Amino acid sequence: MTASSPDPLAHLLALEGVGSAYAAARDGIDVMLRDRGLRRTSPETTAESLLRGAHASAALEGSVSSLTQVREGEGDDVAQDALRLSAALLGLAPQLRHAPLMVFARLHALAAAGSLPDERLGRPRDEEAAARLRGIADLLLGSRETPALVVAAVVHAELAASAPFASHNGIVARAAERLVLVARGLDEKSLVVPEAGHLALRREYESNLRGYRDGGQAGVHAWLLYGAEAFAAGAEASPLRREATD
């Protein structure tokens, strides 16, 4: 994709309500992060955000472990998979800007380690899945003008809907969403917890993902409107909110 190619996601901002919904979600996140600037934050705050995200993502994948159990390292296998992925997530942000296909493969390899044979880790299910992954990578590389929140929502839905890997597609999709926010500079310390936003809105999350997969343009539109709401909920789930009330 050349530098002069049009942004492949720019047209989404013209859908009714999308631009204003994402501007409002971005404003809410910016307020939280600006407040963050008035207090010193630590790596422990980022670690807590990642932990909360891992717990929420695992719960959406069927884990029954509590946040306390996950924090104490006593979560079930699904929670351990999500936690292992979250521990390595931020180190992949620079690579996402240039080699998203390699990042997708690494996300799956981390999440599915121990669940699949080594030769299947990070590998798409078939040629159709490989082509879909290349398409998602092209969207990321080409969407330099579209707001990061919109890009993150689309990458999440594309990965979840296409299920390109043999397992752990939901966990990979939610991790990729968070990683886009970091790599695009919107939330470099990864203090927003989008996974917790989705868990708080679980019924809407699951129904809108189905709509994205099966509902054509109307499904895409509905997912994007939902996504703005979920990002706002993810900002409210940040550990910074708890610190502000301590």
Rank of each mutant, 00 (worst) to 15 (best):
residue 1 M to Q: 14
residue 2 T to Q: 14
residue 3 A to N: 11
residue 4 S to L: 15
residue 4 S to Y: 13
residue 5 S to K: 10
residue 9 L to N: 05
residue 11 H to R: 14
residue 11 H to W: 15
residue 14 A to W: 10
residue 14 A to S: 14
residue 14 A to E: 14
residue 15 L to C: 03
residue 16 E to F: 10
residue 16 E to Y: 09
residue 17 G to A: 07
residue 21 A to H: 04
residue 21 A to D: 10
residue 27 D to F: 13
residue 30 D to K: 10
residue 31 V to P: 02
residue 36 R to T: 03
residue 36 R to V: 08
residue 39 R to C: 08
residue 40 R to L: 14
residue 48 E to L: 14
residue 50 L to R: 12
residue 50 L to T: 00
residue 53 G to S: 14
residue 53 G to F: 07
residue 54 A to N: 03
residue 58 A to K: 04
residue 59 A to M: 08
residue 60 L to Q: 04
residue 60 L to C: 04
residue 63 S to L: 02
residue 63 S to R: 04
residue 64 V to N: 10
residue 65 S to P: 00
residue 66 S to W: 05
residue 68 T to F: 11
residue 72 E to P: 03
residue 72 E to I: 03
residue 77 D to P: 00
residue 80 Q to K: 14
residue 85 L to T: 13
residue 85 L to F: 04
residue 87 A to D: 13
residue 87 A to W: 09
residue 88 A to Q: 15
residue 88 A to E: 15
residue 90 L to R: 11
residue 91 G to N: 11
residue 92 L to V: 01
residue 94 P to T: 04
residue 94 P to Q: 00
residue 98 H to K: 12
residue 101 L to S: 10
residue 102 M to A: 15
residue 109 A to W: 00
residue 110 L to R: 00
residue 112 A to S: 13
residue 113 A to R: 12
residue 113 A to P: 03
residue 115 S to F: 08
residue 117 P to M: 09
residue 120 R to M: 11
residue 121 L to S: 05
residue 122 G to V: 06
residue 122 G to N: 07
residue 123 R to H: 09
residue 124 P to W: 00
residue 124 P to Y: 01
residue 126 D to N: 14
residue 126 D to V: 07
residue 127 E to T: 11
residue 129 A to V: 06
residue 129 A to R: 06
residue 131 A to W: 08
residue 134 R to G: 14
residue 136 I to A: 06
residue 137 A to C: 09
residue 138 D to C: 05
residue 139 L to G: 01
residue 139 L to K: 08
residue 144 R to W: 00
residue 154 V to R: 09
residue 155 V to H: 00
residue 155 V to C: 01
residue 157 A to T: 03
residue 157 A to W: 05
residue 160 A to E: 13
residue 162 S to G: 11
residue 164 P to K: 01
residue 165 F to G: 06
residue 167 S to Q: 12
residue 168 H to Y: 07
residue 173 A to T: 05
residue 175 A to Q: 03
residue 177 E to V: 03
residue 177 E to F: 05
residue 178 R to N: 09
residue 179 L to G: 02
residue 180 V to L: 09
residue 182 V to I: 10
residue 185 G to A: 11
residue 185 G to N: 10
residue 187 D to I: 07
residue 188 E to K: 08
residue 188 E to R: 14
residue 190 S to A: 15
residue 190 S to M: 11
residue 190 S to H: 04
residue 191 L to P: 00
residue 193 V to M: 04
residue 194 P to D: 06
residue 197 G to S: 07
residue 198 H to G: 03
residue 204 E to L: 12
residue 206 E to F: 11
residue 207 S to E: 15
residue 209 L to I: 08
residue 209 L to K: 01
residue 209 L to N: 00
residue 210 R to K: 12
residue 211 G to H: 02
residue 213 R to I: 02
residue 215 G to P: 02
residue 216 G to L: 08
residue 222 A to Q: 11
residue 222 A to Y: 01
residue 226 Y to W: 05
residue 229 E to Q: 13
residue 232 A to W: 01
residue 232 A to F: 01
residue 233 A to Q: 09
residue 234 G to F: 05
residue 237 A to W: 00
residue 237 A to C: 05
residue 237 A to K: 02
residue 238 S to W: 00
residue 238 S to G: 09
residue 239 P to F: 09
residue 239 P to D: 09
residue 239 P to C: 10
residue 240 L to D: 03
residue 242 R to W: 11
residue 243 E to T: 11
residue 246 D to F: 12
